[in-house]
């Protein structure tokens, strides 16, 4: 998977916008999001709650709940334009070409259906040509692949009889069983203990290794991103504010928001810092995005630069550096950074 940069594009999102209209006011929760995921790549999407990362994910799946609505943009999976599909065609694609791994498998599994038949539902829906008699073997096979211990016993159990880690493995099995082009992992480890978290992350890496599945990994946790992702997209206030290879972004963040996120992580080893940096203030109201930079109110760089007018008057573009990194800040890089240091 070293030649990711030259691999073909699996998912291409352009200018995606999602609006929620409630009681007369319109909130643009996702505002012009565009990115790509290439074959075999793990892309992290990081942001606080309300940054638009979950809504983006739902929009990719065509599952934005009422009263939300995709108002603009294009989502292309391989060479299929999802916006042009009927609801039925979209449903046929979900779970087969594009699968979701939920954040809390314990709540996402049907509590009244045994594990085996629940895994089998996906087969029945997407592979009707597969003879019924062959399903049990397929189910056991996939459960073995995700490392579920004693799968012959687990298939007869109900979700609540499994541990959290086992539930998550079952959810991963359901996601990968039909060999999707893209796996969307929605904070798949937040509900788990730390040791189990590591196991599930390893499982995702194994899945990518074995079948070359691309993974869009949604999280609020920079550490996890650093552990398993190839590239990262940082979201803030409905937009991507920075993107690039994980190593570059984590070692030299271009956007002040990314820097603030990284500063909020307690460092490993060495002396504990006097205090962790937190980001003051709260994200702006999605019903009335500010005119200039959406992070301006909370931005330390702006403060250090003496609050230039440009930050609040002109919305920054997501500028590319030509080497695969993008950042949405007027003062990114060179001169401004030098001033601060």
């Amino acid at each position: 998977m070293n030649d990711v940069k030259t691999a073909e594009t699996v998912l291409r999102v352009r200018d995606l916008a999602v609006e929620f209209s409630l009681r007369g006011s319109v909130a643009r929760a996702v505002d012009g999001v565009g990115f790509e995921v290439r074959a075999g790549e793990i892309v992290g999407m990081v942001g606080e709650s309300g940054s638009g990362k979950s809504v983006t994910m739902l929009a990719l799946l065509g599952l934005v709940p009422r009263p939300g609505r995709v108002v603009a943009g294009s989502v292309r999976l391989r060479d299929i334009e999802l916006g042009a599909l009927s609801l039925r065609e979209l449903a046929r694609l979900r779970g087969r070409q594009m699968a979701l791994i939920p954040s809390d498998a314990g709540a996402a599994l049907n509590p009244v259906t045994r594990i085996g038949s629940q895994v089998g539902e996906g087969l029945a829906a997407h592979l009707p040509e597969l003879p019924r008699a062959e399903r049990p073997a397929r189910i056991l096979d996939i459960l073995k692949r995700v490392g579920l211990p004693r799968p012959e016993q687990q298939v007869r159990r109900y979700p609540h009889e499994l541990s959290g880690g086992m539930q998550q493995r079952v959810a991963v099995a359901m996601g990968v069983q039909l060999g999707p082009d893209l796996l969307i992992a929605d904070e798949p480890t937040t509900a788990l203990d730390v040791t189990i978290q590591a196991q599930i992350l390893q499982l995702l890496l194994d899945v990518r290794e074995q079948s070359g599945t691309s993974i869009l990994f949604i999280t609020h946790d920079m550490t996890t991103v650093a552990e398993i992702c190839d590239r990262v997209l940082v979201m803030y206030a409905g937009q991507i504010v920075e993107s690039g290879p994980v190593v570059d972004v984590c070692t030299a963040p271009a956007h002040p928001y990314t820097r603030a996120l990284l500063d909020a992580i307690p460092p490993l080893g060495g002396d504990p810092p006097e205090r962790l940096t937190t980001i003051p203030g709260a994200p702006p109201d999605p019903r009335a995005w500010p005119a200039g930079c959406r992070f301006a109110e909370r931005c330390r760089l702006r403060e250090q630069l003496g609050n230039p007018d440009k930050c609040t008057s002109l919305a920054p573009e997501l500028a590319s550096d030509g080497a695969g990194r993008r950042s949405r800040c007027h003062f990114t890089g060179s001169a401004a950074e030098a001033v601060v240091r």
């Binding site: 799946l61 046929r92 779970g95 809390d104 996402a108 509590p111």
Partner: peptide
């Protein structure tokens, strides 16, 4: 409202199912 309903949709199951 339970999370397993949107997850079932994400799995591509038929609305009737």
């Amino acid at each position: 409202q339970e999370p397993f309903v949107p997850f079932a949709r994400a799995k591509g199951l038929a609305p009737r199912k």
